[in-house]
Each structure stands twice: as structure tokens, then as C-alpha cells.
Amino acid sequence: MNGSDDRRFGKDKRLLRTAQFDQVFAGKCSAADGILIVYVAENEGLGPRIGLVVSKKVGNAVRRNRWKRRLREAFRIQQSRLPENCDLVVIPRAAVEPPLDRLCRSLVETAKRARKKLRKRGAEG
């Protein structure tokens, strides 16, 4: 079944370079909940893209890598519900990983709140 091609997670869906992360952080537009902090910035019609920052506060390398896998999976599953044409940098807050459905919900809700802030800021300026 080829209907899942739009849910693939290729390099075009990721932020890979420091400059891309810096651009998102420079916008200083974020939202957070108890699980995630999500920074958001517009991109040039590239669809939603994600970058991950998982610090040592989260745990050892095994835990950090598990967080990254889970966040990538949440993004892959939910990318159609994420704000269009936005770059997201996602930072986990909690050392304890929530279930995948809770992580997906957190990602979508937090990203939408951050996008709303970005739009509001754009309307004011």
C-alpha cells in the first residue's frame, strides 16, 4: 500500500544544520507543557520539519536515543496535524517518557499553541 508515503520521515522532514536550529531559536517563539518545549518558525513552503534537542538532563545515551526515536515516531504519525510550513525544534522536559499517544497529543497541542503565538506576533508587527 503506497498511501503511507506522505507519512515517511526522510531527511527533507528534518532540521539537520546548526543554522536551521539557530533560525528557529532566533524567533524566540515557543510553547510548553509538562512533557515538551516546542520552538516554532516559518519555513518557505517546505511543510512541517522537526529538529530534536535532547539534553543529558533526560538521562544517559540509551534514554536520550529512546526519546529521539519516540519523538520522531510521534512526528511521523502526527505530521498531517502539525502546523503547515513550520520548522519545529522539540525539547523534552521530563526524564520519564510518557506513552506514545500522550506524546503525540503533547506534540500537536504544543506546536499549535506555539504557531498561534507566532501568528499573533506577526499580526502585531
Rank of each mutant, 00 (worst) to 15 (best):
N2A: 15
G3W: 14
S4H: 07
R8W: 10
F9R: 02
F9L: 13
F9I: 02
K11Q: 12
D12F: 09
R14C: 13
R17P: 01
R17W: 12
A19T: 12
D22A: 15
D22L: 11
D22R: 08
D22S: 13
V24K: 00
A26F: 05
G27W: 02
K28Q: 13
C29E: 04
S30C: 14
A31M: 10
A31E: 10
A32M: 12
A32W: 07
I35N: 08
I35C: 11
L36I: 01
L36C: 02
I37K: 02
I37F: 13
V38W: 08
Y39A: 12
N43G: 05
E44D: 13
E44A: 14
E44K: 14
G45N: 14
G45R: 08
G47D: 06
P48V: 08
R49Q: 10
L52F: 02
V53G: 09
V53M: 11
V53T: 15
V54W: 03
V54G: 07
V54R: 01
K56D: 03
K56W: 01
K56I: 00
K56R: 15
R63S: 08
R64E: 00
W67K: 07
K68F: 04
K68P: 07
A74Q: 03
F75R: 03
R76W: 04
Q79W: 11
S80F: 14
R81H: 10
R81L: 06
L82K: 04
P83N: 08
E84G: 15
D87I: 07
D87R: 02
D87F: 08
D87P: 04
V89G: 08
V89Y: 07
V89R: 03
V90T: 05
I91S: 08
I91Y: 02
I91Q: 04
P92G: 12
P92Q: 06
R93M: 10
A94W: 05
A94K: 09
A95M: 09
P99C: 04
L100D: 04
L100V: 13
L100P: 01
D101Y: 11
R102C: 09
R102I: 13
L103A: 09
R105Q: 14
S106Y: 03
V108M: 07
E109R: 14
T110Y: 11
K112I: 03
R113S: 07
R113F: 10
A114H: 09
R115C: 05
K117S: 08
K117L: 15
K117E: 06
K120M: 08
R121A: 13
R121Q: 09
R121H: 06
R121D: 07
A123M: 10
A123G: 12
E124G: 15
